[in-house]
């Protein structure tokens, strides 16, 4: 038996790691992976609260978060491929113009 706060602590740690990665990394693919890490942290707290409150709604929300993450990954990676074709770099500091 583990108190809910341990899960929330792990969830907060994952979210903080995601934020840190988003701020310190420069590769656009790694930035995307940091966003996925943040979403995973949020999912963990959804599941932890669903268990605490004895309701299944949290599980449904996690399912929807996953679907949105999948859609985001598909579109985002397509955008990354498109950016790489036009600029030939993955460094976000060099992608500083909206239009070439």
């Amino acid at each position: 038996m583990i108190p809910i706060s341990y899960y929330l602590l792990l969830s907060a740690f994952l979210f903080a790691c995601g934020v840190t990665g988003f701020l310190i990394k420069r590769n656009i693919i790694t930035l995307f992976m940091s966003i996925e890490l943040m979403l995973n942290g949020v999912n963990l707290s959804f599941i932890a609260f669903a268990t605490r409150l004895q309701t299944l709604d949290g599980h449904i929300f996690v399912f929807f978060v996953m679907v949105v993450a999948a859609a985001e990954a598909a579109v985002g990676l397509a955008i990354i491929i498109s950016v790489y074709r036009t600029r030939e770099t993955l460094n976000v500091d060099r992608v500083n113009l909206l239009k070439l």
Partner: peptide
């Protein structure tokens, strides 16, 4: 993700 990493040949990154 791994498909895209391999497709774009993403090697080492520069750190801020």
């Amino acid at each position: 993700y791994i498909f895209v990493i391999m497709l774009l040949n993403a090697g080492e990154e520069e750190q801020a």
